[in-house]
Simulated scan of single mutants.
Amino acid sequence: MPNKIKKLAVLTSGGDSPGMNAAIRSVVRTCAYHEIQCIGVYRGYEGLIEGDFKPMGARSVRGIINKGGTILKSARSKEFRTPEGRQKAYQNLVDHEVDGLVVIGGDGSFTGALIFNQEFGFPVMGIPGTIDNDIFGTSHTLGFDTALNTVVDAIDKIRDTASSHNRLFFIEVMGRDVGHIALNTGIAGGAEEILIPEEDLGLDRLVDSLNKSRKSGKTSSIVIVAEGDKIGKNIFELKEFVDENMEGYDVRVSVLGHMQRGGSPSCFDRVLASRMGVKAVETLLEGKTNYMVGLLANKIELTHLDKAIKGKTKINLELLRVSDIMST
């Protein structure tokens, strides 16, 4: 394996997700395994510009595999979007004799890494960390599985009170542009209806579905709504519509919000993060750059950053059909 690289840096950028710490751990320990140095960059690209670096060794990442969030912190950086900001970041890496950069984040973070490489020829590698699972080139992003488990647990608890009081609950989950969380948790949580951005089901279908559920003998209902669903302006507008147009429903709204980002990562996310970190470091050591590591058919594969950024994930149509059948 070619090894011109003697020192790597790793940062986390964008929204945090469970599994980021496990990925940091994997990157650091893979560097230690190959006897190269590793530097942690605090606060993402902002820290890259300010030179907020700290050397990291194998023992510095002990006890973090089970922790949510990111020990390296994360921040949005307006300055990195400017040529002057990226120049400062590049100079800091040169001054610290860093030979390559691992970026853990989403498509915005990858866009910054790609531009950075194009301007300075600096080797970069991406690890997808976002609970939305909206990155092309991987079946699972870090944090997606944990977020699903968090949401399902919340749905189960809400169903207890819905059943006790014969209520209809609209539960909003994250998913501004994609409905992966809503679709999967809706099926797992036994939702009567699932509203996602990819499928404009319309108010008529929602009303028909709720009426069908009531006629079948159901005394309570759960409707999962992705935050990017286009039926109403927001979930509270859906509640108002049902209140005004359907009698006999005691409607409640629950917005799960940022609780979906937190918590200890699942076993799946810990293993995935470990595999991705190893692949990211070893790919850089092989002299490759501008790739994202992803999971495809249970194998860790490479996708060019440009494709990962521009590509669109697709909703699983089989799950839509399963959802229709299960809500009978």
Rank of each mutant, 00 (worst) to 15 (best):
I65Y: 05
R214A: 14
Q37H: 11
C267S: 14
T111E: 09
S163E: 14
A280P: 04
I64V: 15
T150N: 11
N92T: 01
S60F: 00
G179F: 03
T141D: 08
I5L: 14
D95S: 12
G112T: 02
M20E: 11
L285S: 05
S109T: 13
S109I: 07
G100Q: 09
V61E: 00
F169R: 07
R76N: 01
D52L: 03
R270A: 08
I196L: 01
N149C: 08
V151G: 07
H34Q: 14
T328I: 08
L11G: 03
T313C: 13
T219C: 05
V251M: 01
E237S: 15
V223G: 09
G85P: 04
V322G: 09
K218G: 03
V41E: 02
I235S: 12
V28Q: 00
G100V: 04
A162M: 05
F170H: 07
K312C: 06
F120Q: 03
V322L: 15
F80N: 05
S327G: 06
I231S: 07
T313N: 09
T219E: 15
I5T: 12
G112W: 02
T146W: 12
A280L: 10
D160C: 05
M125N: 04
Q91S: 06
D208E: 13
L93I: 00
A308N: 13
D99L: 00
T303E: 11
Y90W: 13
I194L: 06
P123G: 10
F120R: 02
I235E: 05
L238K: 15
G121L: 13
L8G: 01
E286Y: 06
Q91I: 08
I155M: 02
E119M: 15
G311C: 12
F169C: 11
G137Q: 01
V253T: 15
K157L: 11
T30Y: 05
I187G: 00
G15Y: 02
A23E: 07
I235G: 10
L48T: 11
K215L: 15
V207I: 13
H258M: 11
A9K: 02
K78F: 09
V251Q: 01
K7T: 15
L93T: 01
S17D: 06
L11Y: 02
F241W: 15
D229Q: 04
D324W: 14
F110D: 13
G263A: 09
I135S: 00
R176H: 14
L302P: 04
G143Q: 03
K88R: 14
G51S: 10
R252H: 10
I104K: 04
M1W: 05
H96T: 04
